[in-house]
Amino acid sequence: MTEQPYQDQNPYQQGYDPQWQQAYDDQYAQQYTQQWQGQTWETQVQPVQPPVSYQPQQEQPQAQPYGYPHHQHQQAQPQPQSYVQAPEEVRHTDTPAPDAAPAYGPATVAGNSRITDAQRARLEGRSPIIEPGMQPAALTALLGLLLSGAAAVGSYALLVPLVALQAVTAAGWFRLNGMWPARQGIALAFLGAVVADVVLLVAGRGHGPAAILGTLGVWVLLSLVLQLRSHADPDERMYGLMATVASAALAIVAAGYLAADADAVTVGAAAVAVAVLARALPLPTPASVVVSLLAAAGAGIAVGGMTDFGTKGAVLGAAAAACALIGHRVASYDYPSRFVHFTAGVALPLSAAAPVVWVLGRALG
């Protein structure tokens, strides 16, 4: 005979005697209490896995308001609370003061803007200037010596290192302004430099100013027309126009080496090579600048003695070195990358010195 459930043995449903009913209830209550205490003891103390019949008791956090103290439920609150407040702590500790730069902050999950290395350096009181160093200076010196030697050979020999200089100038200026890749702008600026070179070779050195300024004017107009056809935002179009015009201007002005006297190119390019190497020496900035100018003047005298310039080469060499140091300083601005150092850092000193070499070469020669 199978055992029936407790509800089938209920004395109220079966009509049993009240005295027997009371005794039966007391006995069953004592038995149920002992079983409940036994289950609780085994669940809390013994490290064994509870039987299958006890699995519903694993969801105790939901039943805690009814059978457990409330402080056990509150102990689980700090961990998610600290996780939610973590972005607020990061934002308060890393975001600069409102009077310093309220528009920038660290890149966090809270949605703050990413701050650049140069901006962080300024906020921390550090200089955002990183000079190219000795390796780019050595490349500049090599390119300058090639220009100096090729100028003594002839215009067509000078054209080879000059085209390389103009290409690196166009690419380096766009990268220095954070615009990369900018294939159309670089190609446009380099094409303007090549056109200026061709016009100079055809027209001759006597028509150098007209060839350079005419090409530059046409390319400014062409850059303006191309930017007006762009579908970018107005601010982006203006920024792209300025970068394209400046890059084309620097690359075209570098053609001044073709327009200048050959002896002036020989002296000026050699002086720039020496000046950039001296500037890369591990010296304080003021002392490095002075040493660089003096070294360039000495190189101008030495190389000028091999040409018709003589001692006047010191003036040409010092002036060319001064312009080269300006280009070197521009290539060091705003935490430039290694690619900037090996493009703009190499080309800008020589490109910036080209107008002075042409002007002083005509004046002193």
Rank of each mutant, 00 (worst) to 15 (best):
G345I: 03
R122V: 15
T266S: 12
S148D: 01
S337I: 00
A150R: 02
V45T: 15
A331K: 04
A260Q: 07
Y6C: 10
S351R: 02
Q22N: 13
P286W: 10
A63N: 15
A322W: 04
P47I: 09
V340N: 00
A295L: 01
V330M: 11
P349Q: 03
A171M: 04
E124G: 08
A97D: 11
V45M: 14
G67R: 12
Q46N: 15
I301T: 03
T2I: 14
V330T: 09
A269P: 04
G133A: 03
E42R: 13
G206Y: 05
L146R: 00
S127C: 10
Q81M: 11
L226R: 08
S82A: 12
A275Y: 00
V52R: 07
P47H: 09
A232Y: 09
V220S: 02
S148T: 06
P65F: 09
V48I: 14
G310R: 03
R114N: 13
T215A: 05
G317A: 05
A107I: 00
G298I: 04
G327S: 07
L360D: 01
S53L: 15
Q79Y: 14
G178P: 03
P136Y: 00
S113T: 11
V315W: 05
R183Y: 13
G15K: 04
L200M: 14
T33D: 15
A107R: 09
M242T: 10
Q44Y: 09
A319I: 05
A107C: 10
G149K: 00
Q14H: 06
N112I: 05
D308R: 07
V290P: 06
A248I: 07
Y239R: 10
P65Q: 09
V194A: 08
A347M: 01
L277N: 05
P18G: 04
Y12C: 10
H328V: 07
L216T: 01
P181N: 12
P106R: 02
L348E: 01
A280W: 02
W358D: 09
F174L: 03
R362K: 14
Q72Y: 13
Q39F: 10
S82Y: 11
A331T: 03
Q57Y: 12
Q9C: 12
A118S: 12
G149C: 05
A101F: 07
S332V: 03
P336W: 01
A264L: 06
A170L: 03
G365R: 00
Q31H: 14
G256H: 00
R279M: 09
A118L: 07
T33M: 14
A296C: 11
T169Q: 01
V198G: 07
Q49E: 15
A322E: 06
P61G: 03
R175A: 05
A100V: 14
A164E: 05
